[in-house]
Design a protein around this nucleic acid. Structure first.
Lengths: 232, 232
DNA sequence: TCGTTGTCAAGAGCGGTGCTCTCTAATTTG
DNA sequence: CAAATTAGAGAGCACCGCTCTTGACAACGA
């Protein structure tokens, strides 16, 4: 489908990709804040000003990298979900959580780009939120399917939700799955923040000296949170 | 106790403090990566090179800010713990969690400095780890006291710990409280990572558009996690 | 009281940054 | 084939962290 394009268009698409690849490579050594357009250009054998033909500024390149990262994680997580039969929520949850961690450990700098502290002065455009939601959607989708099948059995009730909080979750449920009860969605968001909190702790070095290595703890926690949610 | 010092020593101590204060102010607008010594100096009415008499380089100033931030959060959390009777673990847990969030929301940039992604190229010196542990120590201390008093009653057992994982937690217990069983410590670390994961999500904007505002969710989650741990 | 010594701010300068502007060359389009 | 569009190159602006040198001044012992 690329045949119809002119040589210039193909060159442009290729070079755009090469710029992103080189920028990704530099994320590893300098981080998002230290990403240097000049260094990217130098490595690609061109002059820095030429880069501005492809990305209007540093933020725009960063946005492209962020969207790519969200989509890469999202696709990984979606694939992990598809690899397990739909009617086995516990196995799906396990598969998805471990896939997220594996991706994060394999791509720590891209993970940091999306789940680390926001780049100062950078404001994420609307375009990123759709990609950002993909992983959450998969994780909550497991709960939705289990709830739909009637197999969601939390280990204990927990404190009742206040009316304002329940109302908040009803709004969220409209977007992700109307069947999801506020209590279930609440548990889901707790598990969600726990999962990414744990990944942050591991990747940002807060576990060094205590729960280190983290493999056993992670695997066990995934099971514990699955019981907390009520997946069987 | 400052009386015995020379004018020069007093001036030095004061200026050191002023540099840190101004740097903290700049964290808010430029973030850790964009912290500029020149800008700090300009704001203080001095020349940039003069700053190097007080901090050998940018990293050393950053280290001072990081240690200050860990200690500020640690002191806040310790005070919140002291404010509640020792034999009321649930109330202590609640007080400590809410104090941590209040501090984080009031000092988002200092929170980001210590719990956000690590500053690229910066390696935290040993001096930071002691301050870093203060908050964890308080949170786990609540569990330790409840366990010691025999009032720790988790809502459900959860999956059994593998032997390697239990061994890891026995090592950690030696440092924070030998009475803490591996299962309890495991729950503590889950709650810990959940708490900071939730704060990260709130501060880094992952809740925008879903669980927003986050007050109700946070308060409810603190109670839910308290039940998860078994605090009464 | 007077040097000596250690400390300090200032300034110039190096190599780096993001970004803009202009100029030239190449390619696509009519 | 000419016109219009697009690409890269280069100079330049204001900024950055950091180093080195210089001259002023406070602290202290003789």
């Amino acid at each position: 489908m690329n045949a119809g394009r002119t040589a210039r268009e193909r060159a442009r698409a290729e070079l755009t990709q090469e710029i992103k690849d080189e920028a990704r490579r530099q994320l590893a050594t300098a981080g998002a804040g230290g990403l240097s357009l000049r260094a990217v250009a130098r490595e690609l054998g061109m002059v820095s000003s030429a880069l501005y033909r492809y990305f209007a500024n540093r933020d725009e390149l960063l946005t492209a990298l962020i969207i790519d990262a969200y989509n890469a994680l999202g696709e990984t997580v979606e694939a992990a979900d598809r690899a397990v039969p739909k009617d086995q929520p516990r196995a799906r949850w396990r598969s998805v959580c471990h896939a997220a961690r594996t991706w994060a450990l394999a791509n720590p700098h891209e993970y940091t780009l999306i789940y680390g502290s926001p780049v100062p002065g950078y404001h994420a455009p609307e375009a990123t939120v759709e990609s950002a939601g993909r992983s959450y959607f998969v994780l909550l989708g497991v709960l939705r399917d289990a709830d739909r099948a009637g197999t969601l059995t939390p280990a204990y009730a927990g404190p009742p939700l206040s009316e304002p909080l329940a109302a908040q979750f009803r709004v969220v449920a409209d977007a992700v799955g109307p069947e999801l009860s506020p209590a279930t969605l609440n548990r889901g968001f707790i598990a969600l923040s726990q999962l990414f909190g744990m990944l942050n702790f591991e990747l940002f070095g807060q576990f060094v000296g205590s729960v280190d290595p983290t493999d056993e703890f992670f695997a066990h926690t995934v099971e514990q949170m699955a019981e907390f949610i009520g997946l069987c």
